[in-house]
Design a protein around this nucleic acid. Structure first.
Lengths: 355, 355
DNA sequence: TTGAAAGCGCTAACAT
DNA sequence: ATGTTAGCGCTTTCAA
């Protein structure tokens, strides 16, 4: 392996001059610098990233702590991170294992957490005595952190507002919400929906809520396998979920319960796609018989025929912002405790205009 | 930051004893070892991964050099890698930039290339004077490497055989092949299909081949944008392709050319899904009016209604094998120059039984 | 069984 | 402007 020492010897200078020449830092005679660079090039010299990292105490790597890269939402987020990191000469690494302990023997300068729940869990365990900078992707959950961690937040209330507004603009009055969780969950979407629809439904709210309970899953072994894993994690929903499968189930429940809504807001696009498929299997066509709106604006929307209308969350932007906030922290800049990430209605053809 | 030095001081021993205690290597008095471990624990000591990497010349990181993590095939491959690597105490990192030069300042012990073309390109440029171990995912392309690099190969001829066999078993005789490339391409699928269908079609082969040419794309700005990027890469197809969009176009061409095939083998699942969507838009239903078989066995199959029949390529297995071969190399074990990765028909409902 | 010391490849303070 | 030197945190001879 070619080192600076060798370049220095061949160029007839000391290693520190080589260092300076390479990094354009400090003084070095123009003529000499040119020669050094030439020698380095001829020798095929490249700086050793590990040695540099040890010395500078900077690995130039950031961790995205996410278990479920199969979820297209997280993939998009990751993609955004990769791009933002690349622009600032950083690299994203990804840890497929849920093992917090593992973080400590990973060569990273900072961590991006995929949501508030995982962030809290981390801060309460390993993060307690490992003070690497952390940024959390965030969705308006009222989770408190044991130490100050910047959040890059998607305003889920606004998201729900956009969805409901779009449906109302198309003449829909009786809207249902379909979620992978029971009614008692405190998911921001659920809360926002309830507050938006309260004046319409009053105490009949639950009639227009489709939630997946453990019991509902009894017949579906594919989903059960996932749930069992969830259980192991003492109730926390950290693991990958089969949203598509749960969506199928939700459509089934919608029909069985003979809900008289003309439109459904679905938890996310995967969930909506699952609902679509089951609806069609039951002879109900979207949007002819029922309108459907998803949340995410994911690229999977296109698989739907006709294309799914959705509220776009632009996870790439959120991911990119997470990276930029984290790198700002590393550079010692002041960062905002909460920064927002944009959302926007993404039109498809799954909402019918009622007259 | 707590270092070994500090642990040593508090435990009243030297750093080398601490080192030995931590690594269970060399001699250290049982009593002392226990005390050292206790002290380390109390101090919240964790080994510094970068220092360890510098000393051991092992970063415990592997690079998957893949530009397009949005392609579900590569995601699945990556997932398989992450799992296999985790089991052997390694971490996968992923580089979203196509810049080979970048590889040299990344802290890795080895590289996995996503296909033969990129591997060759790498070996002919940066890889020439950077002799990090490389493993290539491979698909039976007759590409020669300038140095010996193990391949983990999916047998595309067999894949095509399985697809054709399935269609024939269901009574189909006139099969079409739909690809994102012109007929003159040397893609293994195309070659395999031709040799399988030669005795049926003779010189009418081209009548049953749907290929996407540059001209065909003229009307579709979404696809054009991708193509332009491809051009920049001097003709090599290294960048992400909009297979779905090209599939839609292929369905269009199929109809316009009034091809009288009863079944189509599609380049991959994304492509097949695109075809499905356009077919439906044109009033042609799968499998009622036309049968369709994909290649990949990807999870995106489920979005199709009815579910797409496909030849499963199990990219997670291929990815996992790539990792294991690479780590075997690093451990100095002998590895096979070519190892296979399994394929299997994955039944859906997109193939109709003809009588 | 232990500890001193050299060194992995690099940077940076300091003296020249 | 240049070179010497002392580390970064760890492993691993080697002498005691």
């Amino acid at each position: 392996m070619v080192t600076r020492k060798e370049v220095a010897r061949k160029a007839g200078v000391s290693v520190s001059v080589v260092s300076r020449a390479m990094n354009n830092s400090g003084y070095v005679e123009a003529e000499k610098k040119k020669r050094i660079l030439e020698v380095a090039d001829k020798l095929g010299y490249y700086p050793h990233p590990v040695a540099e990292a040890l010395q500078k105490r900077r690995t130039k790597q950031l961790l995205f702590f996410c278990k479920d890269l199969r979820n297209s939402f997280y993939i998009d987020m990751y993609q955004g991170m990769v791009e933002a990191a690349g622009k600032r000469d950083y690299m994203m690494v990804f840890n497929g294992s849920m093992d917090f302990e593992n973080i400590r023997n990973t060569m990273i300068d900072g961590i991006i957490m995929p949501n508030e729940v995982i962030t809290r869990h981390y801060l309460d365990t390993v993060g307690k005595n490992y003070r690497l900078p952390v940024v959390s992707a965030s969705y308006g959950s009222p989770v408190r952190f044991s130490r100050s961690v910047p959040r890059v937040e998607i305003d889920m209330e606004k998201v729900m507002e956009l969805a409901v507004k779009e449906l109302r603009a198309n003449g829909h009055r009786r809207l249902a919400l379909a979620m992978p969780y029971p009614f008692r969950c405190t998911d921001v979407r659920r809360l926002a929906f309830c507050s938006l629809m309260e004046e319409v439904y009053g105490d009949r709210m639950k009639d227009y809520y489709i939630g997946i309970h453990r019991e509902d899953l009894a017949g579906d072994s594919r989903i059960l396998a996932f749930l069992e894993e969830e259980e192991r994690e003492n109730g926390m929903r950290l693991l990958e979920e089969d949203f598509f499968g749960k969506g199928e189930l939700a459509a089934q429940l919608f029909v069985e319960r003979k809900i008289d809504a003309t439109a459904v807001v679905a938890f996310n696009d995967e969930f909506a796609l699952g609902m679509c498929k089951r609806f069609h299997a039951l002879g109900i066509r979207v949007p002819r018989d029922i309108s459907l709106i998803g949340i995410d604006g994911s690229s999977a929307r296109k698989y739907q025929d006709p294309c799914l209308t959705s509220v776009g969350l632009f996870p790439e932007k959120q991911g990119a912002k997470c990276v930029n906030v984290l790198l700002d922290m590393l550079e010692g800049k002041k960062v905002k405790y909460i920064s927002g990430s944009p959302v926007k209605l993404v039109k498809g053809e799954s909402v019918k205009k009622l007259d």
